[in-house]
Every structure is written in C-alpha cells, then in structure tokens.
C-alpha cells in the first residue's frame, strides 16, 4: 500500500457540513489533500480497495474524520472495520457528530476511536474545533509508521 499524500479522509453526508469543514481546514492551512466521501459504503470501498476503488491504488490517509450518522453503513460500522484491520488500525479516527449521545460515545470509545467531537452550531466555534483537531492529529501527534521530520 502506498502512503500517498492523502492527509485527511472526510466521511460526511451533509454537503454543508463538508463545506464548512473544508473551509476551516483551508483557512488554517492544515491540510491540502482532503478526500470527501458521502456514505459508509463509499468509505469502506475506498479504504479496503473494493467496488469502484478496486482498480485504484490503495491509499492510507493520515487522519480520518468520520461522521457518526451516515447513510447505508453508519459511522460506528466503518470505525469497527477500520479498527479491526491490522493496517488501518493505527490511523487516527476522529468521530464527528451533531449531538452528544452517551451510547454512541461509549461505543465509539469501546471500538478504539481516537477523538469524539460534537460539531458546534456556532460558526466560529466550529472553525476552531476543526482547526484544533487538524492541528493536533496532523501536526502534533506522532502516529506509528509515519516518518515525519519536524
């Protein structure tokens, strides 16, 4: 598997939230290579090189931003698949959700998610949340298998 320059895989079914997230990432110069997928099936196909992505070279993102509530296959299922895979397990996964739900939070932690973010309604707060998440997981945190200097 190649470690192309894909920095963030954003799995988000709401195009408005996706746009806001991308805006925040670009505004703060956190990531240039961001791939946006709309549902859980697409995400799994992409990550495991299946379906429309069977022919393409498999890509291992450096960070996955995963909406919890997704069409077809929900975020928890995608998370389960990622954390069950020896190769993908070490990719940090940040769960994004619209509301703090105790059950989801517990289940996400149980499955080995790395962060759980409730998307703020307030624009400034939303920008700030995305900035901090990107900053932490892409710039400050050292993940295994990465050979980054500085």
């Amino acid at each position: 598997m190649s470690t192309q320059n894909l920095e963030i895989l954003l799995v988000e079914d709401d195009p408005r939230d996706a746009e806001l997230t991308l805006r925040a990432l670009r505004k703060h110069n956190i990531a240039n290579e961001v791939r946006v997928l709309q549902d859980g099936v697409q995400a799994l196909d992409f990550l495991f090189g299946r379906g429309p992505f069977a022919a393409a070279e498999r890509v291992r993102p450096r960070l996955i931003l995963l909406d919890l509530k997704l069409p077809k296959v929900d975020g928890l299922e995608v998370l389960r698949a990622i954390k069950a895979d020896a190769n993908l397990r070490t990719v940090p996964v940040v769960m994004l959700t619209s509301s703090r739900e105790e059950r989801d939070l517990l289940e996400s932690y149980r499955l080995g998610m790395n962060s759980y973010i409730v998307k703020p309604v307030d624009f400034e707060q939303f920008m700030e949340s995305v900035r901090q998440v990107g900053l932490y997981w892409l710039l400050l945190n050292q993940a295994p298998g990465e050979n980054r200097e500085g």
Partner: peptide, 21 residues
C-alpha cells in the same frame, strides 16, 4: 430527542455558518 438533537442542529449549523461565510 436524538434526531431532534442531530437533525435540527445540522441545518442550524448551516444557517449560521453560511451567513457567516
């Protein structure tokens, strides 16, 4: 309540975010 929390907040976030944009 879950869907109220989730579903109402998404469009609200868009209203706020896009007017700010």
């Amino acid at each position: 309540t879950y869907s109220v929390g989730h579903d109402l907040r998404s469009p609200l976030r868009a209203v706020d975010g896009f007017s700010r944009m």
